[in-house]
Design a protein around this nucleic acid. Structure first.
Lengths: 349, 349
DNA sequence: CTGAAAGCGCTAACAA
DNA sequence: TTGTTAGCGCTTTCAG
């Protein structure tokens, strides 16, 4: 058991109330007693017990974040930014990773409840509304992403996939691509549906073509991208460019393309979403849609604070833009006539 | 403010002690009352307040982990494993990321103190003993890595770099390499010193050569690896193989080598440490020394539990092995006569 | 300007 | 088998 305020009080010959006042910077204490107390605090390395403060105030000073894949650098970087923001505001962060498993989402929510967090950012997509009820009921502000619903105590951040993917499609169109493929996210998730539909809308709006065989699902991870790409490449007629649901998927797709002996972007263009650090490291560097982690983290925080102000009304909605980052994994569409298949050309460095 | 035990008690027409007993699975309650209470608990979604429990018991049920770089997949994967382990044991995890800044270490330690964590795993290397004193003083068990010291309440995990790097050097020697370079970690860190010395020892023991110009420092990140490699490659005489302090460094080094037009492993072999997932994705896949995250996480947990048993004596020491993973970034040493510099050869796929 | 005392939600003696 | 009570460390009226 570590040292308590009462012991500080005893050492200083005052009451614990006075110690508390000094710690909280109250004006009502003589500078003399205050500095004496401060000295003792420093000497014995006293640190107040936050659980007691929590109990008193009802604020745990902890926020929670629930993410689907801690192994995805996008989320890691986001967590990092969010943590920094919170620490600056004297808050703590509880990270829960679900690995895409909905059973683990339930447990994560319970963890948040147990700790009476002051707010939860839910970045997984596999929740039903019912799951959030317990949070709302316990008056814990929630912010979701791409949930497209608002309810009391819940705010939502919408990532602008429609806009982003339209940019990407336009970029590919300008490069001469007409036949586009899409590797989406895990089947059945809301986010996956949004991304896929954004793709289809963009294709239609810009007068390009795709086919259902070119629009397959992945799992937001490298392996899923590889598998999906192999499927696409095994067809007799292939798209000339592929857009993927995230960068990891794109990296997996690139791998599969290489394994089939295709050159990127000469034979096929590949693009991702997220702009993780790795995207600039792989070969060739990946063209992608950047989502600013800093901005995202800021929105999460802002949304939670805003929602907390009045739990009895729906929280605000935010829109997070995506910006096109052109690198070298996308290039001119191969001409349909001569399918550019000379063997020993070097991979253009 | 969310619902409390007393309210449950009121609803059930019993005292809060009975409710507490039901929740903690005491035998002393009639099955009848127990199930009635359980029903109410379920109905109103009651979740006990852990801060109150903490206050009562003195155990926060939270462990802390302090890492230098959340962006490094090695640490992310480790955090993930550690978190899983803790959640299984009904514990919570507080993650603090220092970004290699010692000021942030101080703050992180304070955060741990504030939350009265039940144990802290410190994986940063930049701490002086003084920093740990406050933890020990507050009776918080600590486990460090590569600290090579033991003190009361502190246990240490030693990563077997000497053994691992010896394996790597032997591997390169077998491939015909005689001149080895080394890109280490950030200057001034204990871990960096250990890795560098392990390299030198292995070189000497196995009768190979290196030079001080071939042994440079990095920063455990991709960019540092690139810069360091550029430095090495700008010299007139170059090593034929490079061992690096971690995989990110190796990946940076590979990048720099490519940028200079070198082929890996034909012109130069490069090896890393850690075996992060990315190592098998980059081109060519990286030969590396694997450190098992699962084993590491297990040791951290074990060490903390062991140390907690008796804070008045030094905690145990553990040794974490490294195992050689041979992939394609290491290959036969180029013969010294004809330095293999034909231009337009394809990068061997 | 400082102290006494109550109470946040929970548990564990002790009583009944 | 269940209830009463004190107290974990802190803050905050209310008195002094």
């Amino acid at each position: 058991m570590s040292i308590s305020m009462r012991e500080i009080a005893k050492l200083a010959g005052v009451s614990s109330a006075t110690v508390s006042r000094v710690i909280n910077g109250s004006e009502l204490v003589t500078e003399e007693t205050a500095s004496r107390i401060r000295k003792i605090i420093a000497d014995v390395n006293f640190v107040p017990n936050t659980s007691a403060i929590h109990l008193k105030h009802g604020k745990s000073q902890i926020y929670g974040i629930i993410i689907p894949d801690l192994t995805n650098p996008f989320f890691t970087e986001l967590v990092k930014m969010f943590e920094e923001l919170l620490v600056e505001n004297e808050q703590e962060l509880l990270v829960a990773n679900t690995d895409f498993a909905s059973t683990r989402l339930q447990r994560s929510l319970r963890r948040m409840l147990l700790r009476r967090v002051d707010g939860v950012a839910i970045l997984t997509s596999e929740h039903e509304a019912a799951a959030l009820e317990s949070l709302v009921q316990n008056r814990i502000p929630v912010v979701t992403t791409d949930h497209y619903k608002s309810a009391c105590g819940i705010s939502d951040i919408i990532i602008d996939f429609p806009g982003g993917i339209a940019q990407m499609v336009a970029h590919l169109k300008k490069l001469g691509h007409r036949k586009l493929g899409f590797i989406g996210g895990t089947e059945g998730l809301e986010t996956s549906r949004v991304r896929r539909e954004s793709f289809m809308d963009a294709i239609v709006n810009q007068g390009l073509t795709s086919r259902s065989e070119w629009m397959v699902t992945g799992n937001y991870r490298i392996d899923g991208g590889s598998v999906a790409m192999k499927g696409i490449l095994s067809q007799k007629e292939k798209p000339t460019a592929i857009i993927t649901a995230n960068d990891l998927t794109a990296i997996g797709a690139m791998r599969a393309a290489y394994d089939k002996g295709l050159r990127i972007p000469d034979d096929i263009s590949i693009a991702g979403c997220d702009d993780i650090e790795m995207s600039d490291i792989v070969y060739p560097p990946l063209t992608t849609l950047r989502i600013s982690r800093r901005e995202y983290a800021g929105m999460l925080f802002e949304a939670l604070r805003e929602t907390a102000k009045d739990l009895s009304k729906p929280g605000p909605q935010f829109r997070l833009p995506m910006s096109l980052v052109v690198r070298r994994s996308t290039g001119k569409a191969p001409s349909d006539r001569k399918p550019a298949r000379k063997s020993a050309t070097r991979r253009g460095r």
